[in-house]
Design a protein around this nucleic acid. Structure first.
Lengths: 122, 122
DNA sequence: CGGGATCCAGTAGGATACTG
DNA sequence: CAGTATCCTACTGGATCCCG
């Protein structure tokens, strides 16, 4: 193992950044947020997360389901009805992310301003 | 002209997920963590963030600099020496991210387990 | 030492059409 | 309604060479 790294950083950044990349995927957190209040059906989510295609919504939900963040419940009615709900794991993620989201919300304007100035100076 | 600023986002976090995607980029947070203790030089960071190419380190640092997370200081010595340091903005990001990182560290095993079971059931 | 310039592969993201 | 199936584009990540 690499014992030469002189930082007392959180151990195993590699595994953690794996989670980050999922969180950072374009639609993941918006879907999680859409489910925070209560379970919702496919097209309800699609309506809330404006701009998402049904393809991307399907993919995002599958990934979240795969990780155990979201539970999928199929009702054998006609027409078919599918509910998606956050699991406890998913809810705890949403809660942890909320703080980072708050940071982003507060600093968004400054970051955009920094970018503009950087791009102009170039 | 400001085409980049979303005017209205009722529940939507389009601007926030923009920050998330940067945080989720493969190397961004590992570089930030590498700078948390003190400023460091290019090849120091490269050594700490094992596996990163000089190309990707350059790109990542440029993006962080662009957003005002990192400050770049060039010393006109021979050989040239460049220091990278977190700004206050960068440090506050690191702090906010730490909590999400802690969440990821705690739940990583469970998530991996969920994935395995999901993939088997397929 | 600290990059920039190229080129290249893989994947995320998206548009559209079709289906049980 | 809730998806699959295709096909396509753009961007992320990386390897390599070069340069002051």
């Amino acid at each position: 193992m690499d014992m030469t790294t002189p930082i007392d950083a959180p151990r195993n950044c590699s595994g953690v950044s794996e989670i980050f990349s999922q969180v950072g995927e374009k639609w993941t957190m918006q879907v999680v947020v859409a489910l925070r209040e209560r379970p919702r059906r496919f097209n309800d989510i699609k309506r809330i997360v404006s701009g998402i295609s049904q393809q991307m919504l399907t993919r995002t939900l599958r990934n979240l389901e795969r990780d155990g963040m979201v539970e999928r419940t199929v009702r054998a009615t006609a027409p078919p009805q599918v509910d998606y709900a956050l699991t406890e794991l998913g809810q705890s993620l949403a809660e942890s992310v909320r703080q980072l989201a708050e940071w982003a919300r507060v600093h968004r304007a400054v970051i955009h301003d920094n970018r503009s100035r950087y791009d102009e100076r170039r």
